[in-house]
Design a protein around this nucleic acid. Structure first.
Lengths: 210, 210
DNA sequence: GCTAATATACCGACCGGTCGGTACAGTACC
DNA sequence: GGTACTGTACCGACCGGTCGGTATATTAGC
């Protein structure tokens, strides 16, 4: 991979994260990088291709910065899950509630406009849910029985995305923190633990109980 | 209010809901309504003004179609809350997972681009949370003690928005339904009820327990 | 070791088209 | 005859993308 290509993708990722895909012009990216237009179109055949490259870059960054250190740690699977949520929290705090989740942003912007982007984003969200699901699965020994892991993992993704949205629109981390705290308390009810292992909490997250 | 003005707002609301604000052109709206450009700028001094009018229109529609019938019903406050969630569910189903939540869409698109829109959207989200909070407050008699109503209501908003996002990107109501079912089960743990009123569930949603 | 050929990297002018917005003449109604 | 409304022509800025052409480094043939 060319270094300049990576440099374009890096800059484009940042601008698109803040301004959205359609609202980011090629000229915005050229101005930031100093790359000239003819050169840009040597590396990317279209803005669309850049968009896909940006998605891959963002996934890689997220894995490298947030996931990998936690996965490599000695924590229990359940605590890893909590730490992922905390990592997302500190990401938003660091960004001062600007940008939000780049995947959530692009999902809402593009899902009804561009089927190709929608499919890639669907895969990304599926991956997010599967990350939580595999952590929950690894934590099965820590959990009460009858928990629908797929459903709970989807729920976690929704709370995370919804919480980040609230932070972005309120320009405050408080509402997101409130949501995440509720989520953690909810998750702790799935845990076989000192509070209540066999009583009322066990049915939470069960299938077909409604 | 002029009838034609309302007609423009109605059409603009639909298009903006599907394509986003910046990605909807004035010409899109003119084509849909048959209104000519000079006429449009007689009723709206700018696209921005139209955007604010669209937000007001969407709020009105949401109240009229989803909230008012439920508020006027004889249900208990707690059941009203459940019915609001169900109403949001059927809205997404009816739209075949297209569009998503217009407020969530615009919040993610515009919060970092336009401070005026951000502020109005923040108010709207505050209103959503307050709606749930007031229902929870009215349901206080049905609830266990020590529930942080503000925090829980914020949590509900996040799950709703996150769930709708998942429906939109997956083009399926299933992930959203899963989230909403988890949410309802969570809410039922806040309820003073036959399952467990004084045991493990009461601490859910409490402040400062972490 | 020189030259010719080739691939990669880069440049900036330019394209057709669209954007939000304006100017202004015409018209319908009181 | 004024006022509220409507239609059309038009504006400059910007959009994504293309174009012909250049600089440079590598390689091949002799």
């Amino acid at each position: 991979m060319s270094e300049k290509r990576e440099q374009i993708i890096e800059a484009a990722s940042q601008i698109i994260h803040l301004k959205g895909f359609n609202n980011t012009s090629i000229d915005d990216i050229l101005q930031r990088t100093g790359v000239k237009k003819g050169n840009f179109y040597f590396y990317f055949k279209s803005k669309e291709e850049l968009g896909f490259a940006v998605l891959e870059h963002l996934i890689g960054e997220f894995h490298r910065r947030c996931l990998a250190p936690i996965q490599a740690s000695a924590d229990t699977p359940f605590n890893k899950m909590i730490r992922v949520i905390d990592a997302l929290d500190s990401e938003q705090a660091k960004a001062q509630c600007c940008g939000g989740c780049p995947f959530g942003n692009m999902a809402l912007e593009l899902s009804d406009l561009h089927e190709g982007f929608r499919q890639r984003l669907e895969e990304i969200f599926r991956g997010m849910a599967q990350l939580f699901q595999s952590l929950l699965k690894d934590a099965a020994g820590e959990l009460v029985e009858g928990v629908d892991l797929e459903e709970v993992s989807q729920f976690i993704v929704a709370v995370v995305e919804g919480g980040i949205m609230l932070a972005k629109v309120h320009k405050s981390i408080t509402p997101m923190r409130q949501c995440f705290r509720q989520l953690k308390q909810y998750l702790s009810t799935l845990r076989r633990g000192p509070i209540d292992a066999s009583g009322s909490a066990q049915w939470l997250g069960k299938r077909n109980t409604q």
